[in-house]
Amino acid sequence: MISWKKNLTSSIGKKFVTGITGLLLVSFVIVHLIGNLLLYAGPDAFNSYAYFLEHRLIHGWAVYVADAMLILFFGAHAVAGISVWQKKRLARPQPYYQAGNAGGASRKSFASRTMIVSGLVILVFVILHVRMFKFGPTATVVVDGIEMRDLYTLVVSTFKVWWISFAYMAVMVLLGLHLRHGIWSAFQSVGATSPRYQPVIYVGGVTLSILIGLGFFLLPLVILFFYENPALSMGGI
């Protein structure tokens, strides 16, 4: 019997961790994006949805469970991912004079070679993002007789600051890149591929990464250029 710790820190165990947590994070990000699309539906829809998540779902417990899981997934994913990168540096200390791409069956791409960069930027982003929105300053509004946080105004007024919007969009391009290699790679890491399904998973992964990246990219863009600024009274962020 080999210990759990040893298996999870082996080359395959580490990739199993990045893969499983990566797929769970992708699922989260998809749900998050769909929720965010309610910003297009107006203040009441978005605020009520947020209120539902925070106070109604499993009597308000869901949000704590989700937070705990997300911290765990993000943490494990980052630790395993960074460890893969460290090992790679040890495994080839002397770089090639010339490094090529053999083409053909290769899945090597700009995205696959910059996972550590896109990943670390996402890590910093997530911390700022949570601080900005989850713990951001909000007024209260009343929708259908219920008093709730006016997150809609917080989001819209934040994205009305042009450089914040552009920084967001830049990070979302990196998220798209991370997932361009990440989604298919995660399936391969957990062993959920076969010769027959590999091409489908690859193309599906790339497509999904574009949809996710574009979805998140468009929100700040549309808000910056097409929304009314509701927040002047609130003083922005």
Binding site: S10, S11, K87, N101, A105, S106, R107, S112
Partner: peptide, 17 residues
């Protein structure tokens, strides 16, 4: 394999190519 100092597989697929 791990003990010999090889890196972990990031699924670049360059090996197959």
């Amino acid at each position: 394999m791990d003990r010999e100092g090889f890196g972990d597989c990031s699924n670049h697929g360059e090996c197959e190519a």
